Simulated assay, not measured.
Amino acid sequence: APAPAPGADQQTPELIQKAKAARQDAGLVTGTGDSIAASGTASQALAAFTCAIQDPLRGNDDPNLPLLACNQDGTEKYLLGPVFLQGSEIDSAAASPPTQNKAGWTVDLTFKSAGRQIWGDFTTKNRGQRAAFVLDTQVVSAPTIQTAIVDGNTQISGSFTQQQTKDLADVLRYGSLPLSFTSSDATTVSATLGLASLEAGLIAGAIGLLLVFVYSLFYYRLLGALTIVSLALSGAMVYAVLVLLGRWIGFTLDLAGVAGFIISIGVTADSFVVFFERLKDEIREGRSFRSAVPRGWVRARRTILASDAILFLASAVLYAIAVGDVQGFAFTLGLSTVLDLVVVFLVTHPLVALASRSKTLSNPKLTGLGGVQSVSAERRTARKAATAAAKEA
């Protein structure tokens, strides 16, 4: 990487000192207090001053010195005296709509007790002069004092729109608040370590998915194959949604998100297990595979909806109260839970129903339901034998 330019770290302090020397020179004004006035060099300094978008004095100006400043649009320049009244002395500021006594929108503001006295003295001695309200070295309003305001109830009028008066009132009311921000979560991970961790998480997810595939094929056979198809489709849908979210809102998949995705594999597989076990229960009661599918689906559907609803609610609460990586985990888990319902209702159940109507696909050797059907046949035989014995008796 190229070496930084000499003095690059000192650029900002140098700009601040240079701006202060040019715009906050004590010689720009003469006199003190109520007798303050522009000096002979002020007009020349004001003419040489240009309004800039990035002001190095923003947050770095000295309130006890005069200041060359611009309005927010950069269309008007001002020579301001030292600050005589802090914004923290403003008690309230609100936009006021037109009434019978005034034609347009105005901003009504009041001052606290100490500020009311200072403002009253200033307006009494400076009628016909302009008073500037300044925020971050920018003049947000510079109205002309029409009369002495001894009670602190001040009204700023002009050719304002409703939005302009609201914006000005917000600046006057909140602009002087001492705001500070604290970092709730910060994690620094090198690019190599982050990539390695992400790859390890994806490998773990692939291994878990493979184990689910093997178990499903071993235990459910054809139904296990339908499980694999459904899981593959669910994963593709999750990936597609994450890609779209990445393009729309800049969402990125982190380690916590990968963990949520891995857990969602178990959630989706659990829905299939619930459905298939309900099918087995129906077949044990003596029903055929075809007749067991609709009855088993009705019973399994309630359980699947209840479990996914609880999991989604937990994910939503966790996302709302957590920060940082935990939010990524909750978001991915909640998203996968919703997509699980889509896959189970629109893919898995219809595929199982189609398989139950096919003579080839409903073969007990293929479906893995042969043992359950044997149990059902034995129960029917036992019931018939018991019935016959009862009749003979």
Rank of each mutant, 00 (worst) to 15 (best):
K102H: 11
D61W: 13
V107Y: 08
D121A: 14
G40N: 08
P63L: 05
T154H: 04
D61I: 00
Q155A: 12
A69Q: 07
L80T: 10
T99N: 05
P56V: 09
D121L: 10
N71W: 01
D62T: 05
R23V: 00
T147E: 15
A21H: 07
C70S: 07
T137N: 08
K18L: 10
V150N: 11
G87Q: 09
V29F: 01
P82G: 01
A26F: 07
W105T: 13
T50E: 15
F49R: 08
Q155R: 15
Q54G: 02
G27K: 12
N71C: 03
R116L: 14
K77Q: 09
D55K: 04
K18D: 10
C70W: 10
R116F: 05
L57R: 00
Q11F: 05
A114D: 15
L65A: 12
N64S: 13
A19R: 05
Q44F: 05
T75E: 13
Q17K: 13
D55F: 04
Q146Y: 06
G128W: 10
R127T: 15
L67D: 07
E76M: 08
N64Q: 09
T30E: 14
Q138C: 04
T123C: 00
L65S: 13
Q72L: 09
N71Q: 05
N101Y: 13
T106A: 11
T12P: 03
S35Q: 14
W105Q: 13
T123E: 05
A37L: 05
G33D: 09
T106W: 01
V150K: 09
G81K: 09
